[in-house]
Structure formats: C-alpha cells, structure tokens
Nucleic acid binder design. Sequence first.
DNA 1: AATTAGCACTCGCCGGTCAGGAGTGCTAAT
DNA 2: ATTAGCACTCCTGACCGGCGAGTGCTAATT
Lengths: 343, 343
Amino acid sequence: MLEPMNNRNRQILEAIIEDYISTAEPIGSGAIRSRHGLSLSSATIRNVMSDLEELGFLASPHTSAGRIPTEKAYRFYVDSLLAVRSADRSERDEIRRRCAVAGRDVEGVFREISQTLSSVSHYMGIVAAPRFTAHIFRQIEFIRLGGRRLLAILVSQSGSVQNRIIELQEEIPAEHLTKMANYLNSILTGLTIAEVKSRIIAEMQSEKSNYDSLMADALKLWQQSIDNGEEEIFIEGQANILDQPEFADVQQMKNIFRAIEQKSQLLSLLDSCIQAPGINIFIGSESHLNSMSGMSLITSTYVSGKNTLGVLGVIGPTRMGYSKVIPIVDYTAKMLTRLLTVD
Amino acid sequence: MLEPMNNRNRQILEAIIEDYISTAEPIGSGAIRSRHGLSLSSATIRNVMSDLEELGFLASPHTSAGRIPTEKAYRFYVDSLLAVRSADRSERDEIRRRCAVAGRDVEGVFREISQTLSSVSHYMGIVAAPRFTAHIFRQIEFIRLGGRRLLAILVSQSGSVQNRIIELQEEIPAEHLTKMANYLNSILTGLTIAEVKSRIIAEMQSEKSNYDSLMADALKLWQQSIDNGEEEIFIEGQANILDQPEFADVQQMKNIFRAIEQKSQLLSLLDSCIQAPGINIFIGSESHLNSMSGMSLITSTYVSGKNTLGVLGVIGPTRMGYSKVIPIVDYTAKMLTRLLTVD
DNA sequence: AATTAGCACTCGCCGGTCAGGAGTGCTAAT
DNA sequence: ATTAGCACTCCTGACCGGCGAGTGCTAATT
C-alpha cells in the first residue's frame, strides 16, 4: 500500500524539489544522497522515489534519467512552506531603497516597483495598477486646447491622473467650463469613481439639471471624460527570464512573449487575486492560461487604508525559487502599501 | 580589374539580396539563375558573385555555401531603392483605419501607432513620444491631495499631460495655490517648455518676485513640477520578431531584449534622427549600438505645424523587407503628422 | 519487515564515420 | 566574354558504438 506522506518521504521530496530548482536537471537517487548527506542508501531512495512517482509528485523524462517534480509537487512544497521566513536582509534593503527613490508621478512608482521585483527576484516583475474605478474622486478639470478640442483631467485622492481629449460639437466658453467643473466637483467629491457613475445617473434624472442646461451638459461631458478602458499593467525584466535554461527552447519563449503582449488574460487573472488578499500562487496550469504553461505566478495584494487597490507579483518558470520569491513579493507588497498610505 | 558596378552586376546583386530577404538562406549561383530567369549560365554568375564578394557586397559563410549580402549590400540596395513606391493599398488602409481608432489620451495614440507599425510590418514598432521640452506650455494646475502632498499637472498645447506629486515642507492654503498657478500661467503662456526654463530663471532674478514671496514660491514650485526625466518610448510587437529565423539563436535574442529594456541607448539614437527630417535608415552596425548588431532600424520623423516633434519607426533584422517597410514607416509618419495637426 | 548491495538493463549523449548534395573555383573550350 | 566540365570543399543527416548516469529487480543483510 502507498503510505501517503511520512516524514522521510516528505524530506526526500523536498530535497528533490530544491535540487531541481537550483540545477534544472533531473535528479537521480545517487545525487540526492550525496548532496544532502542522508543516511540512506541510494536503493532506498529509489524505492521512495518510485512511490512518489506513483503518487503523482514526480515524473521521469525517460527511463534512465533522474526525476523531476510535477506541478503537484511544487504545490505540496509551497503549501508546506507556509512557515514563510521573511526576505533576506539585503533583499529587504534593496526593495526599501528603490521604493524610496520612486518619487515622481504615480505611474512611475508602479513601473519602478515592477523593475524592483524583477531585479531582486531575477524573474519578471508585474504590477497591476489600481482599477481606476476604485479610486476616490478628487477633482476634475477641463482645459481648452485649440479649437473645439477639450482636455478633461481627472484626479483621484491618491494622485492618480487620467486624462482624455474630447472633440466638442461646438465651442464652450471658458467661464462655462469652470462652472461645469465646479458643479461636478461639488457633487462628486469623496465618492469612488464607481459610485460616481450611479450618482451621475441620478443627477441626470433630477429636476435641477433638467432646468439648467449647463449642468446637463456638464454631466454629458463627464461621461465622455471617463475612460472605462483597460487597466494598466507594468511588466518588467523580460530579459531576465531568458537566462533561465528552460527557455533554450524557442517555442516556449514565444508563448510567454505573446502572453505578455496581450495582457488582457493576464490582467483578468490578476484581477481575480484582488478577492483573495495576501499571497496567491499559481503553479503552471493552475492559472488556466495555456500561455502560462510551464510558468508560475506569485502575487500579493497591496492596500491603501482598508480597501485593496491592486496586485503585484513575479512571473517565473514553475521551477522557481519559491522560498526566496514569496518573501520578496510579500515584502514588496507591504512596502507599496506603506508608500500609498503615507498620507 | 574590378569594374565597380555595371548594370548586370547590380541586377545580380539585387536578385541575391531579394532572394535572401525572402528565404533567409545563403543564395547559390544556380538558385539565382533559375529563380530570376536570367539568360546567363551559373558559371558567369559565379564570376560576378566572386567580384561582388571582393568588393565587399557579399560574404560566404563557408566555402561551399551560397552567399549572403553584407551590410554594405543592404546599404547599396536601400540607396538605389530611392524610387520608393508608396505602401500597398491594403497596408495604407489598415494604417489609416487604426489611426482613426486611436482616440483616447495622447499617450494612447502613440501606443496604438506603435502597435500598428508592428502589425503591418511584422517587425517591431517603435515610437518616441515628443520630448516634453519641445511642447508649448498651455497651463499648470496645482491640486492638493491629502496632507502636504501636492499634485502638479502640466498641460501642453497639444494635450499632452505631465503630472507629478510634490511633497511640501509646509501646507499651502488653497487660495495661494490658485494665485500661484495664475501667476505662472500668465507669464508662461505660449512658450515652449524649454523656453520656460530660461524665463523662470529670468523671472527669479527680477525684482518683482523678490518682493513677493508668493511668486518666489511659485517659481520654486515650478522647478519641482517639471520632470526632466527620460522621454517615453513605445515599443510593441516584440513577439513578432521571434518568428524571424535568425533568432533561433537564443543569444541574439537576449541582446535585443536587453536593448529594448534599457531604452536609453535606443532613445538617443532616435533623438539623433530628429535633426534629419524624413526617412532614416540604420543598417546593422550603422547604429553604433552593439546591442543592435544584426538589426536594422527604419525611422521617420513626425511633425506638427513647422517643428518636428518626434520619431517613429520599425526595428527588424538586417535581412528586412526594406521595400515594404520603408513605405509603411513613411506613410505612418504622415498619418501621425496629420493626426497631430488636425487643429 | 525494512534496508541495502549487486547487477542487468535502458537510454540519452557524444564523437566518429560515411554518403549525399549544394556550391565553388579553376581550366579549357566556345 | 561566356560557358561547360570537373575536381574539390564543406555542411547535413544518418548511422553506429561506447560511455555514464540512473533505474528496477532480486537476493542478501540487519
């Protein structure tokens, strides 16, 4: 009978996984014995490995190669790793240092964080900017460009800016524009962008705006200003991942780069992480994206105040240094959270 | 004696280049004769090829392979190609169509154009956004975020927006902020951002501002708002280029992706094109960037009114379909120009 | 009953050899 | 000046055999 997972089996499995993570080559029974100083013969280890294979934790590329961990093995490894130690001193230092540098505009912060994730982990860094609809409205401004072109600038509490050019049917005098902006600012302050939407609809149906065409126009203008387009997503360190031996195969690489270019699939995956606060890990096919086959994704959510804003993480091969990367992602998310709640 | 370039030699050279562009394999004397129906024996062609090699237009990977064009050959080819025909009907249509779609914010336009370049050419598209300092100042706004955080928003005539968060030493009351903004707007309207810089310095030395601390503060605030950081650059279609057979070699790929990630070198190369309006072509080492070895860059400038704003182009292997891509780049630059001068 | 030594076997990898083919360069004929 | 003919080069792919790492099984050991 297959004894599910006694202590020794687990120890051996972890040894295999760790060796494979560092060497990227199939691990044989002899190698594991010598590298981990176990007081077991290679024959015994072979027996254990055979069991582990039958349980679905290991696979052999061919008869006489060693064995490599399956996704199930990584999952087991990661789960049992829950005793997450925190990131190394030096890693923490670098993350902190680079977060401190990230001054400039809000967008620049996210890009910098993404680069940091990538350079510290040596895989790809990814940051999904907060869905704009989750932001709290601060102010709207209309600026006349030449002719009938109008620039609408939307600012959120946290300093994110979204802007959009509007082509008007007819020119609107400057004083009307400021009135419109004032009107919108007065009724919308403090709402999230999502809430603003319903507020606008309510306002449009109210009597007041029906009598005042200026206000009605203002509300229409708003609807042109808000950009319900796709969220932004910052991926950095693509070159890093080329160093991984598994991408000697060109086909695999194409997959990944296509996945990165499309972004939309990736984005909806990240979006789904917002529900589950804290660390999330997708190993290989767990992401249900076939462009991510052979890849793992480690994410964490970042927060401002009491609502989670967005997700950041690291993408690497399934054979990833989980024990290093998980703390890195965790710590970076915390730093970003702190950065956003400095207020 | 080596006769420099009579008509027949040139014809053969072009045939070789074109064949090589489409097959990516060394071209032999037999192949060229059959594919182009020349009334010459393969022996004659061999003699010609031998001459062309000595002149530096061809190289042979090894004794008994065919020949491949050198950079010098491509340069010759491109120069003699000056009778640029315009882009295909279908290509023009697609470019026009996608330019029309590109509504939204200014940044979005550049990204869309870059994607268009990439998808029409099947290589990588690249667009360098206008140097912000070339823009004409339109308006500055200060918006108070929580606490001592201030958001400065800078708008240009053309609708580009740059924003930046400033950490203040001490809070500034709202009415002061509007006064400061008004002051800055009044003295800076119509200048380019570059001109603004010297104007600010002049203004700081003038008596007026020395007596009015508000104005002095406003000028200081400006200096914190303007972001003299790097320009933006949009590169799309990286996955496209993986289909090119020359990148079966992984090493080459790494080079390129590193070059793309750094951007700074690439940017200064593009910058240098602003001086030379119209089409610019860098073949292989002509760019003097060794990360671009084996790659060619075709650029064109785009314009608004009378001053050139920026550069766009296509990056591909030296073995690139120049006769197709050059018109594409040319046409796209014209479309973008038109898009920016709609006014 | 668990562990281990021993051993036959499998299979990828590496280097060497060999035939085939594409292409060249040279020479001599046209 | 062009071309046919031919020897020569060198890449490619197939095939082969030995090596080594690793396995799985069996029998001996603890």
